[in-house]
């Protein structure tokens, strides 16, 4: 157990350090005021250089599209679609059911965004949001601390609910974790490290954003929970097994409870007093008939 833990710990430290290094090298992207605005307004649906999200990756957008068209589209995608613009209609179809809402942006702001995207594109890097950066490198001991936060053993400083309420990670407890939310065993396979860190810091999912709106994780907690989730990357989720164990224990307990009730009231009247008497009398009568029959035969044989 401890050997495995140590191995995982080492892995996590290495991975974490990588993320941190990436983070420091690109901190200026988000530090840029337009970058901060991009993170707030666009990043929930768009990446620059890290692939598709709810909308297309914006890397090299100026090389692909006409700047005037972009101005028109960003200002009001819906009217573009309504006007029957072929590209707009195609985009809406590709990313259905997501629909880009009309943006309340001035042409000047749109121009700033386009310039920012162009700058990032030309630098050959990817956009890393402020929230996707860990405040410090992962250290040994973070995994255990993260585990404690995950299960709720250690309370989150701002009072947010423990992860285990809704989420599971393979092996977090003998019967697994919560299943209202996703199984996070391979959260890193689904999300990039940056996204994961970002989610931990400011979750964009409807349920989580409401639950954590007023009580977000502290930077330190983000690092530690991140470390714990990283450490589970190598496990294979098997929710069926833990669910089965849960049901099995529940059923065994149910049977035990029913047995206990039956025992507690074992002296209760059952079929009914009169019916008992009748049954006994009938039984006695049958017995008498049998013995009479028997002695009759015995007499005949003699």
């Amino acid at each position: 157990m401890t050997d495995r833990m140590n191995a995982l710990l080492r892995t996590a430290v290495v991975v974490g350090s990588v993320v941190l290094m990436q983070g420091t090298s690109r901190a200026q992207d988000a530090a840029d005021p337009t970058g901060a605005l991009f993170e707030k307004q666009c990043y929930s649906c768009h990446n620059i250089g890290s692939g598709k999200k709810k909308g297309p990756d914006l890397k090299g957008i100026l090389q692909r599209r006409d700047r005037a068209w972009l101005h028109k589209f960003i200002a009001s995608p819906k009217s573009m679609k309504a006007s029957g613009d072929k590209i707009a209609v195609g985009l809406f179809r590709e990313f259905a059911p997501e629909e880009m809402p009309d943006q309340m942006l001035t042409p000047l702001q749109i121009e700033d965004f386009l310039n920012f995207i162009d700058k990032v594109t030309k630098s050959g890097k990817v956009f890393v949001p402020q929230s996707g950066q860990l405040s410090r490198p992962v250290r040994p001991g973070d995994i255990e601390a993260g585990y404690a936060y995950f299960t709720g053993k250690k309370k989150l400083a701002a009072g947010g609910p423990a992860c285990i309420s809704c989420h599971s990670v393979q092996g977090v407890t003998p019967l697994g974790g919560g299943t209202l939310g996703l199984d996070l065993t391979q959260a890193n396979a689904r999300y990039t490290n940056i996204e994961l860190a970002s989610i931990l810091k400011a979750p964009a999912f409807p349920t989580m954003s409401r639950l954590f709106a007023n009580n977000p994780l502290t930077d330190e907690e983000v690092v530690q929970v991140f470390a714990y989730l990283q450490s589970t990357k190598t496990r294979t989720p098997d929710p069926g097994r833990s669910a089965f164990a849960f049901v099995l224990i529940g059923m065994a307990g149910t049977v035990a409870c029913l047995g206990l009730m039956n025992f507690r009231w074992r002296a209760r009247l059952r079929t009914g007093v009169r019916k008992d008497f009748v049954a006994q009398a009938v039984e006695r009568h049958r017995k008498n008939l049998r013995s009479a029959d028997h002695s009759h035969r015995a007499g005949r044989d003699a």
Partner: peptide, 10 residues
Amino acid sequence: HQPYLPTIDD
């Protein structure tokens, strides 16, 4: 469930 209640059959 009253354990010692006679039922209508009694």
